[in-house]
């Protein structure tokens, strides 16, 4: 097996007259966090949907864990998990039932045990027997991500995982993503939040105008710019620093 978890070559996709992807190329290595950066409508979700077998491309090729997304889609589905832009949880079921459902569908041997483990890991044990539509945005997102971890897929797609979350919930998601990558999971995340890419990603690719216009580590990207000028400015706390200081990190809950 190679070191490459996701390989995308000259990927093309149009919706009627809108050419969204005009030849996208990038590789994601095993165990790394790769951020696909782009503004709204740049084609981030389209790329993710093609890689997670939800959408067929018009041209080019893409493979995940060595399996072609179009010809071996069943194999691809066994190795991936998708966390879409909006928390895809069943609101009528409880948190635990949601996890058990996914575990059964993935054919996990002990569905209940897996569910319990993930509930504790994501701080949802107290809310386990409550209906998911009573969860806050942050809790629903945590459940959503927990559901994506059932069956420990090798590759996880996170499509704008922190959109619509408050700063605390966002930090929690970041922590989770880091932990996942430390555990060897390959993560492809999309974001329009520059700080998110900066904080999390091992490597970053910028999707713009249907193509990857730049990619590399943060340092490599920085080198594309003229050397930094040193300026002295007073360090003001950002509103986020203030908010977090006042609210207090209440045990990461």
């Amino acid at each position: 097996m190679t070191d490459v978890a996701i390989q995308v070559n000259d990927l093309r996709k149009s919706f009627k007259d809108a050419h969204v992807l005009k030849g996208v190329d990038f590789d994601v290595r095993r165990g790394e966090i790769f951020a696909l950066l782009g503004s709204n409508g740049a084609g981030k979700t389209t790329t993710i949907n093609i890689l997670s077998t939800l959408l067929k491309s018009d041209g080019g090729s893409a493979s995940v864990c060595g399996f072609d997304v179009q010809r071996q889609s069943e194999k691809v589905r066994e190795s991936i998990s998708l966390t879409g832009q909006f928390a895809a949880v069943d609101g009528i079921l409880t948190g635990r039932e949601n996890l058990v459902l996914i575990a059964k569908l993935r054919g996990v041997a002990d569905a209940r045990k897996t569910a319990d483990m993930l509930l504790s890991r994501f701080g949802l044990r107290d809310a386990a027997n409550r209906r998911a539509d009573a969860y806050s945005g942050g809790m629903a997102r945590r459940l959503d991500i927990a559901m994506s971890l059932v069956g420990t897929p090798a590759v996880i797609f996170l499509d704008e995982p922190t959109t619509g979350l408050d700063p605390e919930a966002r930090l929690e998601v970041w922590k989770t993503v880091k932990e996942l990558a430390d555990g060897g999971t390959t993560i492809l995340l999309t974001t329009q939040h520059l700080e998110e890419a900066e904080r999390l990603a091992d490597r970053i690719a910028i999707l713009h105008g249907g193509k990857i216009i730049a990619s590399g580590t943060l340092d490599e990207l920085k080198k594309l710019f003229p050397p930094a000028e040193v300026e002295y400015i007073e360090k003001q706390p950002s509103l986020e620093d203030i908010f977090l200081a006042i609210v207090g990190q209440t045990g990461g809950k």
């Binding site: 997670s52 589905r77 991936i80 832009q85 949880v89 069943d90 996914i102 569908l105 993935r106 054919g107």
Partner: peptide, 13 residues
């Protein structure tokens, strides 16, 4: 609408 279809479709179901 809730994205459950997408979730199921991206799984080996």
């Amino acid at each position: 609408q809730k994205g459950l279809f997408a979730r199921f479709h991206s799984m080996p179901v």
